[in-house]
Design a binder for these strands. Structure first.
Length: 955
RNA sequence: GGGCAGGUGGCGGAAUGGUAUACGCGAUGGACUCAAAAUCCAUUGAUGGCAACAUCAUGAGGGUUCGACUCCCUCUCUGCCCACCA
């Protein structure tokens, strides 16, 4: 093996000495901010997956540098937070000591992987010089009115006696001790991210981000447009709301005539009780019970919805009828208004609840199926001819089989169906139709199925039809039948199908609807359709009815988001103290106002240092560890100078990482978080790469903070990351690597044995950077062998032929590699480089220009070996600041081409010929080939000729 | 239940609608060696055939097209994320 250890050491030192990876932060001409999500220094040291991501990001950075950019590629550690703290607790170490050792270890490992980091600008979130400014960000947010203290229902582990973050609750159980997590209401700090919900959503469209991640964010933000409708209450006493009404949020005002009861969340019910509603004991009991439910109990109960009759009624504003009010915990307090109008006929949850509690179910929408494809697609602009019709499902008299019709003249598969004549009842029409189409004489009506409507183009009659179907389910009493009338007989075959066969029968949508209604027995239709049982709105399209109904009953338009405000406070130790002070005398003076008595620590007093304390473990109460340290929390009020108390909670780790990319270009700034000038030069980040697991949390928070900073006039852009790509996940033996599973790949071992270049090449050869893959030792051998051969080639070429131009075949390779790297498909770039090497070896002779071009293109992927060979060839230092090879468009096309000859689309020959050959000549040449002649006998029906590419004979 | 991504040799994976399986791993045979490792050479999708060659193959089934891994529809399996969101 080539002496990688010696080479890597040599160049690491030289690079550091000559500072080639430190851009001039003030004067750089073509700045390119190449960023990876900074690592969380965990217990295990650097993960092989991180090595892949980081070196993958570095390949891109080096590529950009060679394209003439001043690349800034900083590195730091996201070391604050619960994970680090938990690890410290587990090992009995103090988090500060743990941070110190893991920092050394991480930076050492990161130093070995050959990345062009700007080491001068590293930062750690637990460094007071950093978190001073995290606290400053908090205060800025406060000044903008984006911080609020309010009560929240938090995850609470009764065994550890501590509050847990959402990410610490795994399947309803505490991450650390495994006990069921309950809810507890506490006062907490929030960032009002929901103020930016709309901007966070609409800005997404303009970002060059992987579509998948944008979709995750859109879903997380979860915009839904609906209306608020007021239901006045009857029989309620004491509730101080003078109108005595409850407001519900709905996206389906068109179903209001089907709202047969109202359901409110236990939390809202409790609020009513708090303001004087004298609810029954039974109600109070239910509320108590459901408010103390554990996560697991709630998950388990999803299948059987619980609830209690509140003993009062509400008036449906559309029907004017009094309907019952229920309390149930399937209604969430945190979404909408905490109250819903229940429409059991058109909502599955409401339906389930109504069936269980024997509540009225009233259908108000019937489906309309519209054919939009094929022969029977509705013709635009033509009027609809309406017609009453029936569908019938017919069961065999003995077997569990049903009649299906396969039509002969048209490509249809249906159940029995037909029109209803004027004097007929639908039932009669159905029986008649069964006789006509199948010959069976004794169908017995078992039940009627929900009706449906269908719009389609009636081909034989040449008109658009709007058919109104009634659907029935019949069972034959016996097999008695008559001859099918001759005019019907030729039309279709009558088939007896099992349930399973019926599933794969290609029924039209409205037939399928009838079948599903029979099989599932569930009559919940949640789509749009035709209004029924809705008084004057009957017959309207439900979408159109929405607006009209809101208008009539006085509803209010309302947009709701699933996004919640960002809970910032943690009752923990290992984070930046929240820089707030509470003064009880000032609180009295401003009583009643939002956040009364709270004020920020004056900027000159920052940072609020996190003291080293020994009892850093989470306490047995809802207070943070710092709350038992008066020397920390006792302070004076900045306003009245009286005695006051500091906030003892620390902030969420995600706040640390929501702004770090602003600090990187200006880490040594002691006066400000970042200078405007540096930020203007380097931000927004040009390329950001990291794990998809951060798609909604970190990436959303970072965008939010950036928007807020823009609003404050501190930066002049709203979006921090111009281009974002996720990295894939590396597994080992098919599963995620973890210490407990014992399937860890230790980068140190492998770099020691094979060198950083080989590891880099192999990690990128697995798959495109944005896709994952499984680590296989066997595959690594390929990378090692490749570099060995490169080394041999470079060593053995003493005096390569000195030519000025690269060989003409090289241009295509340059293009391929350039394109592949631009798209982060390094695996393809490496494959092409291997192909070039094979060519070099096969050809025997290698000229200087080709070899140099090859090394230049390999340089981002394998920075050490290429630097060494570059020097060996007598070139000047460093290969990493040389220009990326260019290809000549004209050279991409060669004079000779391989013309593909097909017969009926099948390859029959290839002809080596000259570029620009005309069709006639190509045809002659092709037909002179034996293998073509054999298949083309006589004159071909058609000849397809694609210039310089292909000729296809259709015979 | 919803959303997203994806199914190509023994394995990782390539293929602007135009030569499917590039590149690598593994495997088999050979060279070198006392021997092994390393290295080098050859073969390697399946089936049939001595062979030239033929037929079949990109999860399954349809469709569009002269031509489909690629575009459209239906289904299926796997992975990830969200999940009582009114």
């Amino acid at each position: 093996m080539y002496p990688f250890a010696k080479i890597e050491k040599k160049w690491r030192e030289k690079w550091e000495e000559t500072r080639i990876y430190e851009p001039d932060l003030d004067k750089a001409k073509k700045p390119f901010y190449n960023l990876m999500m900074f690592p969380y220094p965990s217990a295990e040291g650097l993960h092989i997956g991180s090595v892949r991501t980081f070196s993958g990001v570095d390949v891109f950075g080096r590529f950009k540098r060679m394209q003439g950019y001043d690349v800034f590629e900083p590195i730091g550690l996201d070391g604050f937070g619960i994970h680090s703290e938990n690890f410290a607790i587990k090992t009995g170490k103090h988090p500060m000591d743990h941070a110190e050792t893991s920092e050394k270890n991480f930076y050492r490992q990161l130093g070995y992987i050959g990345n062009g980091f700007s080491w001068d600008e590293k930062l750690e979130t637990y460094d007071p010089n950093y978190y001073k400014w995290t606290q400053w960000v908090f205060i800025k947010m406060w000044e903008q009115g984006l911080v609020e203290r309010k009560k929240a229902n938090l995850n609470w582990c009764p065994s550890c006696k501590t509050v847990l973050a959402d990410e610490q609750v795994i399947n309803g159980k505490c991450e650390r001790c495994g006990s069921d997590v309950t809810k507890k209401e506490l006062e907490q700090w929030f960032f009002k991210i929901t103020d930016y919900a709309e901007k966070l959503l609409s800005n997404l469209d303009g970002l060059d981000w992987t579509e998948h991640i944008k979709i995750l964010q859109r879903n997380w933000i979860g915009k839904s447009e609906g209306s608020l409708l007021a239901f006045s209450l009857r029989g309620i006493s004491g509730q101080s709301d003078d109108k005595h009404s409850v407001s519900v949020f709905t996206t389906r005002p068109d179903t209001i005539f089907g709202a047969t009861f109202v359901v409110i969340s236990p939390e809202l019910a409790q609020k009513w009780i708090d303001i004087g509603w004298s609810a029954s004991e039974k109600v109070k009991q239910y509320i108590r019970k459901s408010l103390s439910k554990t996560e697991n109990e709630r998950i388990a109960e999803q299948k059987s919805k619980t609830g209690v009759d509140a003993g009062i009624t509400a008036v449906n504003p559309a029907t004017r009828k009094e309907i019952p009010v229920w309390i149930a915990d399937y209604v969430l307090s945190s979404y909408g208004t905490g109250a819903i109008m229940a429409v059991p006929a058109h909502d599955e949850r409401d339906h389930e609840f109504a069936v269980k509690n024997d509540l009225e179910i009233r259908t108000v929408i019937e489906p309309v199926f519209i054919d939009s494809k094929g022969q029977s697609a509705v013709r635009e602009g033509e009027p609809f001819i309406e017609r009453d019709a029936i569908m019938a499902i017919v069961k065999h008299w003995k077997d569990d089989k049903y009649i299906g019709l396969r039509w002969k003249k048209v490509d249809w598969e249906t159940i029995v169906t037909g029109g209803v004549e004027k004097e007929q009842t639908p039932e009669k029409a159905a029986i008649e139709e069964i006789r006509e189409e199948t010959g069976y004489l004794n169908p017995k009506l078992v039940k009627e199925l929900p009706p449906a409507h269908s719009k389609f183009f009636h081909n034989p009659k040449g008109v658009n039809r709007f058919a109104h179907f009634r659907s029935f389910y019949f069972e034959l009493e016996n097999g008695d039948k008559e001859e099918i009338p001759s005019e019907e007989k030729g039309n279709h075959d009558v088939l007896w199908l099992t349930k399973k066969e019926m599933e794969s029968f290609r029924l039209p949508e409205c037939h399928r609807f009838a079948w599903n209604a029979l099989v599932d027995g569930k009559n919940v239709y949640t789509g749009k359709g035709l209004m029924v049982n809705s008084e004057k709105f009957d017959g309207m399209d439900s979408e159109e009815a929405k607006g009209a109904i809101i208008k009539q009953i006085g509803g209010e338009k309302r947009t709701d988001y699933h996004l919640r405000d960002w809970l910032i406070s943690r009752q923990r130790y290992w984070g930046p103290p929240i820089p707030m002070i509470y003064c009880s005398s000032c609180a009295k003076a401003s009583a009643g106002r939002e956040n009364a008595g709270w004020q920020p620590v004056p900027e000159k007093d920052l940072p609020v240092l996190l003291p080293r304390i020994d009892d850093f473990r989470p306490k047995g109460s809802s207070e943070a560890p710092l709350a038992s340290h008066p020397e920390f929390y006792e302070t004076t009020c900045p306003e009245c100078k009286g005695p006051a108390r500091r906030e003892t909670d620390v902030s969420d780790t995600f706040l640390d990482s929501a702004w770090y990319f602003f600090r990187y270009p200006d880490t040594k700034n002691g006066k400000e978080a970042f200078s405007k000038k540096r930020v203007k030069k380097w931000l927004p980040v040009d390329m950001y790469i990291g794990g998809v697991e951060h798609a909604v949390l970190h990436l959303l928070y970072a965008r939010f903070i950036t928007m807020a900073l823009k609003n404050m006039g501190l930066v002049d852009f709203e979006e921090p990351f111009t281009r974002l790509r996720p990295n894939g996940l590396i597994t080992f033996r098919g599963s995620k690597m973890s210490k407990s599973k014992g399937n860890i790949i230790d980068p140190d071992d492998y770099i020691g044995k094979f060198g950083a270049d080989a590891i880099r090449i192999y990690l990128q050869f697995i798959s495109p950077l944005y896709e994952g893959g499984d680590w296989q030792d066997g595959g690594l051998i390929g990378a090692v062998r490749f570099l060995d051969r490169v080394w041999k080639l470079g060593e053995n070429v003493d005096e390569p032929e000195d030519v000025k131009e690269v060989s003409s075949w090289m241009h295509k390779s340059i293009k391929r590699i350039t394109d592949s790297i631009s798209e982060l498909r390094y695996n393809s770039a490496i494959a092409e480089l291997m192909t070039i090497l094979n060519k070099f070896e096969d050809g025997g002779e290698v000229n200087r220009k080709d070899l140099e071009t090859f090394l230049l293109m390999l340089a981002p992927l394998a920075p050490f070996i290429t630097e060494e060979l570059w020097e060996k060839l007598g070139n000047k230092y460093s290969i990493h600041v040389e220009a990326w090879p260019k290809y000549d468009e004209k050279k991409l096309v060669e004079d000779t081409i391989s013309l593909i000859v097909q017969v009926n689309g099948k390859l029959r020959a290839t002809i080596e010929t000259t570029r620009g050959i005309n069709e006639k000549r190509a045809e002659e040449l092709a037909l002179s080939e034996e293998s073509v002649k054999r298949y083309v006998t006589g004159k071909p029906k058609r000849v397809i000729f694609v210039k310089d590419k292909l000729i296809n004979f259709v015979v």
